[in-house]
């Protein structure tokens, strides 16, 4: 029973935060709603015994990524509310909501219509419950995750190191101001075509 209550509360937080992100006009408020969603997801991870991932979720997502978003928003001073009433492309908003609804219907339909209808969920979608790396009962998830990462996925792990280095260098190259004249803001609309 306590499981259901925890799930219901975190689901409410997640969905509320997500609606906040897509509906709040001010980007700062959207970023703060995003934190709510990330914390809700972290609670769900704890509930499913993925403790290490819950920790990383809070530290990396709710910590680093949202702070990065807020930094960029504040740094650029784009924290003005977006005029949500303006719709430059007629019907874009209705079409976007329709596409989202169709996507939801497709995924939920796939969830309930495929595979063995009596069993539902994961087994219905995958058709089988073949295990690649069985979890070990009673062992901490971080130990199991580390063993899997540094044996089966060692090359991938090294590749992510290269990816992060490339991303860091790329960010420095993209954002670096090349000279004083680069810092002068162009008037909007006067960019050369």
């Amino acid at each position: 029973m306590i499981d259901v209550i925890v799930f219901a509360i975190s689901a409410l937080i997640i969905i509320g935060g997500a609606i906040g992100v897509i509906a709040l006009p001010n980007p700062v408020h959207a970023a703060l709603s995003l934190i709510a969603t990330f914390f809700g997801v972290a609670v769900l991870f704890v509930q499913q015994e993925a403790h290490f991932l819950a920790l990383v979720q809070v530290v990396v997502y709710a910590g680093a990524i949202v702070v990065l978003f807020l930094f960029v928003i504040m740094l650029l001073g784009v924290d003005r509310a977006q005029e949500l009433g303006v719709e430059p492309l007629a019907g874009q908003r209705a079409a976007g909501v329709a596409v989202g609804a169709v996507l939801l219907a497709l995924v939920v339909g796939g969830l309930f219509l495929s595979g063995d209808p009596d069993r539902g969920g994961a087994v219905a979608l995958t058709g089988q419950s073949g295990q690649v790396v069985p979890t070990v009962e009673g062992e901490q998830d971080v130990i199991q995750l580390a063993r899997d990462l540094f044996t089966r996925h060692l090359l991938t792990f090294e590749a992510t190191g290269i990816l992060l280095t490339v991303a860091t260098v790329g960010a420095v190259v993209l954002v670096r101001a090349r000279g004083a004249e680069d810092l002068i803001l162009d008037e909007p609309g006067t960019a050369q075509h």
């Binding site: 609606i19 430059p88 989202g100």
Partner: peptide, 16 residues
């Protein structure tokens, strides 16, 4: 996922 996709389609601020 559907909410995220909807937001991606209807918002115009690149940060959001």
């Amino acid at each position: 996922f559907a909410l995220g996709a909807t937001g991606l389609l209807i918002r115009r601020n690149p940060l959001v």
